[in-house]
Write a protein that binds this DNA or RNA. Structure first.
Lengths: 227, 227
DNA sequence: TGTCTGATCTTGGTATACCATAAGATGACA
DNA sequence: TGTCATCTTATGGTATACCAAGATCAGACA
């Protein structure tokens, strides 16, 4: 029974407590608030989040399945670490999926898709201008989402998002790199232009260049940090 | 509870109860014991499995993250359903990843890898001979695992396995199809031969043919069943 | 004195009981 | 007969208790 009370009070209803905690913990890991390799002690998290162990444990299972958390037997969960060997694999898979999506999108892009893509690109441009890396990451995500969704590749998009989560720390660093900012927008524009021209090969090539560069920057950063 | 097989294994359980339940429920879904779309009532599962709600709930979260289970708000979890639109996406992604893995494997395959691959192929052949679809599925999985692992693509292999889980019902039907049995082994042999010859393009092409056929069989079966 | 043992603490794993809410089923009453 | 209140069921969420395993440290014994 919907009464006037509900309108005034809260719009948070659709979210379950588990989802809220999931979002918070995911955000804490992605933003680096929980360091890589840090142990996630259940009872401590319960206190910090103000929820019961049941909720925390279920959320940890989800994060574990997402690859953000690793659980060692008899030692409990910890934030997953990332070495270059794994990160490279992730960039390689992204390359395959994003090329394919850009290709498909360029083939079938209609006026509506193109408009959305242009809008997303402008979002990236203004995010570049603002200089906030979080905003930039979101804008970039939005740009790719348009590509995947309009290509009808929902599942591939899910996979890419999950992979992006696992390299989020790298991704933030990469996006924040100076030279990336300069050429990054240019490369995004190339992808955008190729799709608007319905030119699949050019779109795939642009994605390839974009990701190859991102991977090499990430490699440099990761290896510099690792030592 | 304990089957005869378990006696042979180690007394101490390296497996946690959650993992056991996860394996059993995953198996029940993959084997079709839990029908597609069937609701998974927590307390019923507790009775059936003889474990507590904590375990069941955590396992459901994992299966949810794997895409085997979907949870509707205020109605609880149910076994995920699969339409052709989604299945096709999965086959497309598998195509990308398996082509890439076969390619990489063919490029770098050494004597050890080739020996393992031949062994895996013989496993498939004898599974064909035995005619048991479960054994065949396992043997096929083993064959691909050799390819992915030797190519150093652990993460892609994880993704493929997860995707395979989501189309397991289709996969079982596909593998059980008569004509598939005939040409399937031939195509597997082609993949095997191309890798042994260190011929990447041929390996990729063989994978492409293999999966394209599998997808078309799956499409026919799914659409026939759907109506 | 050195080592071994055991008590204790922490953490994870499991089970159970309890409450609140939403949705569907059921039955009573106008 | 139709509508509404209630009842049941199942879920989400919480709290708590118990046990097992590993680590740590202190004390006892050779």
């Amino acid at each position: 029974m919907m009464t006037a009370h509900d309108d005034l009070k809260i719009e948070q209803m659709p979210q379950t407590l588990r989802e809220i905690v999931l979002g918070r913990m995911r955000g804490a890991i992605l933003s680096g608030r929980f360091a890589s390799g840090e142990r996630l002690v259940e009872r401590t998290l319960c206190d910090q989040l103000g929820v019961s162990r049941s909720v925390v444990r279920e959320v940890i299972r989800i994060l574990e399945a997402e690859g953000l958390v690793e659980t060692m037997p008899n030692r409990g969960p910890m934030v997953a670490t990332l070495d270059w060997q794994r990160a490279k694999q992730i960039y390689d898979i992204r390359l395959l999926l994003e090329q394919s999506a850009a290709c498909a999108c360029a083939e079938m892009a209609d006026a509506v898709t193109k408009a959305k893509l242009t809008e997303a690109l402008q979002g990236i441009a203004s995010a570049f201008a603002s200089g906030q890396s979080l905003t930039l990451a979101e804008a970039t995500t939005g740009f790719y989402e348009v590509i995947f969704r309009s290509a009808g590749q929902d599942i591939a998009w899910e996979i890419v998002q999950r992979l992006n989560g696992r390299i989020s720390r790298l991704r933030a660093l990469t996006l924040a790199t100076k030279e990336r900012n300069v050429s990054g927008l240019a490369r995004m524009t190339r992808i955008h232009d190729a799709i608007l021209a319905n030119h699949p090969e050019a779109a795939a090539q642009a994605v390839r260049d974009h990701l190859t560069e991102a991977a090499s920057i990430a490699e440099r950063l990761l290896k510099a940090e690792g030592t």
